[in-house]
Design a protein around this nucleic acid. Structure first.
Lengths: 205, 205
DNA sequence: TTCGTCATGTAATGGGTTACATGATTAC
DNA sequence: GTAATCATGTAACCCATTACATGACGAA
């Protein structure tokens, strides 16, 4: 998961670890807490050893100022960039549709977060796979609820009901997204019909 | 988490490992996948070593038949029961309101699943603590969305929006539960107003 | 000069999972 | 007799976390 996310971000632009964590927190924040440095830095090491990323990228071209921040002798930032093998690996992970892609919130979430880097066919495959999983889960809970409701205490029941509702909502959400993919347009912003937030420009793909 | 859940279930009735897993899956299934035996059995060992549970309970009195299933010489089932120290520990965990109780889905979920074994004051404390956390998270996402929306691609944005919505719904849910606790009644079953599922009897407490 | 935040890292630990191994019991 | 499911367990691994340690840089 971390590997995937790091490759995905470095695919967009070179970055150092600290910045990477901030971006990660932003990109994955919807379904996951911030990752720790104790996890991030060792992973960067591992990716570097594996040849998927390398030191010495030019950090994202920020405007005109920004005169190379004179980090001569000191420990300073280590800017990483993705390598050719890294890009290959990232594409491989993007397209992979194993159970890990649908099972966990995290697995699906990371893939979704990088949907902008994939083609429509892959997006549809993943969305449909996820929908199937959530539907299975939903059916399991429904069946369980109708069979065992009388043996459960009120709180357990309420928890179950809440979980079931979450499944139902996720299925609806996925269905909208699937329909939208099929229609060939950008994912719509469903919550702010009269929002002051700017509409997205077409996806690069 | 596992420790808590095991103690909670054995508090209700003695059980062997396999059965424990099934019950666990049922009770925690709303927010968590089934736990593995590779995790369950070692934990049972640990709890036994710690003196919180002990071998040799009478499994839940099931009807009249059930002539002690002659497990004489073989490996057979190992039925565990909770000890006095175990009960003490369970009460301690039930009442504990550290960050782990609110932060993770799992931490809150386990506590909630055993709400029937707690007093109203503890329930309220936990529900309000959880609400505060989710509100914080919600605010963080709102702020982020309004600040950074134009720099995000459509999919990341949609993921963010979906996450925010989930937070908002959870807060509403918690609010209902809190109001209900304060009113002094059982948690209502909100989804099946004309359900054929039986209504719950008053909570034991 | 001190505080916040930027920035990188290590060691110990945690809390699980998967895969494997074994065997009894029940239903067909 | 054979397949499903009940039942218990171990070993290897995974993917992270927390706590700790270090230090530079900018702003008050």
């Amino acid at each position: 998961m971390l590997e995937f996310a790091i490759l995905g971000l470095l695919h967009e632009s070179p970055m150092h670890g600290y910045e990477l964590r901030k971006q990660l927190t932003a990109k994955l924040g919807a379904f996951r807490a911030a990752i720790s440095y104790g996890s991030l830095y060792p992973t960067l090491r591992r990716l570097q050893s594996a040849g998927l990323i390398a030191e010495g990228g030019e950090p994202a071209t920020r405007a005109t100022n920004e005169e190379v921040p004179l980090l001569s002798g000191r420990r300073g930032r280590v800017v990483y960039k993705i390598t050719a093998e890294g890009k290959e690996r990232f594409q491989e992970l993007l397209g992979s549709a194993g159970p890990e892609t649908y099972d966990s919130e995290a697995g699906f979430g990371v893939h979704f977060a990088f949907f902008a880097s994939t083609d429509r066919a892959t997006r549809l495959r993943i969305l449909e796979g996820r929908r199937r999983r959530v539907e299975e889960r939903r059916e399991g809970m429904r069946e369980f609820l109708s069979r065992a409701a009388e043996r459960l205490d009120a709180y357990t029941l309420e928890l179950q009901r809440h979980g079931l509702e979450a499944c139902e909502r996720e299925v609806r959400w996925l269905e909208e997204l699937i329909a939208h993919e099929r229609s060939g347009k950008d994912p719509k912003i469903t919550s702010q019909p009269s929002s002051d937030l700017p509409r997205r420009s077409p996806l690069k793909e």
